[in-house]
Simulated assay, not measured.
Amino acid sequence: MSGVLTTVALLKQTFDKYAGADGDKNQMSKKELATMLKAELPGCSEVDEFLKMLDQDGDGSLSFEEFVTFVATFAVLVGSA
């Protein structure tokens, strides 16, 4: 499998690991986002800011598409630091 396909599969696997605990496996709630950030990015406590910035449709949760936007934005920020 190519590096890009492996990365996409890993993104989906990570999203699926945290989304759905609150009922909807296609959305990551604020609580699920907080759990993911705590586990995957220790020291990151700005859940409200992340959710507000990424929740493009304003439904209070993140779809997989919005999650991918988060990861891409994070990658750009880390890559330019």
Rank of each mutant, 00 (worst) to 15 (best):
L11G: 02
T69D: 12
F64K: 01
E65A: 10
L37R: 04
V71D: 07
A72N: 09
G58A: 11
K25N: 04
A39I: 01
T6E: 10
A19E: 05
D55V: 03
F67S: 08
S29K: 01
K52V: 03
G3D: 10
A9F: 13
M1D: 06
G79L: 11
E49L: 07
L33S: 08
S61G: 03
L11S: 02
T7R: 15
E46S: 11
F74Y: 06
D16I: 06
K31S: 13
T69N: 13
S63Q: 08
A19S: 14
K38P: 01
L51C: 04
Y18C: 05
V8Q: 11
D59Q: 03
T6Y: 07
E40Y: 00
M36T: 03
L11N: 03
F50W: 03
P42L: 00
G79P: 09
A9V: 06
T69W: 14
E46P: 01
T73C: 14
D48T: 03
L5V: 11
G23D: 09
M1E: 04
F74D: 13
N26S: 12
G20Y: 04
Y18T: 05
D57G: 05
L77E: 13
D57S: 06
T35Y: 03
G43M: 00
Q56E: 12
M1P: 15
Q13D: 13
A21M: 10
S63N: 07
A81I: 13
L5N: 14
L5R: 15
A34G: 10
M36C: 09
L51P: 12
D55R: 04
A75D: 06
F74A: 15
A9R: 15
K25R: 15
G43V: 01
A9W: 09
Q56P: 04
F64I: 02
S2P: 15
L62F: 01
S45L: 04
L11E: 04
T73P: 00
A72H: 07
E65P: 03
T14K: 10
K30D: 09
A81C: 11
K12D: 02
F74E: 12
F15H: 08
L51H: 06
A9P: 01
T6A: 12
F70M: 15
L33T: 12
S2M: 06
L77H: 09
D59F: 01
S29P: 07
T73Y: 12
K31L: 11
K12W: 09
Q13S: 13
V76D: 12
M1F: 08
K17D: 12
A75G: 14
Q56D: 12
D16W: 03
A9D: 05
G60F: 06
K30A: 10
D24A: 12
S80V: 15
K17W: 06
A81M: 14
Q13G: 08
Q27W: 00
L5S: 14
G58W: 06
D59E: 03
P42G: 00
V4G: 01
T35I: 02
F67T: 09
A75P: 03
A19M: 05
E46R: 07
E65R: 07
A75F: 02
E40V: 06
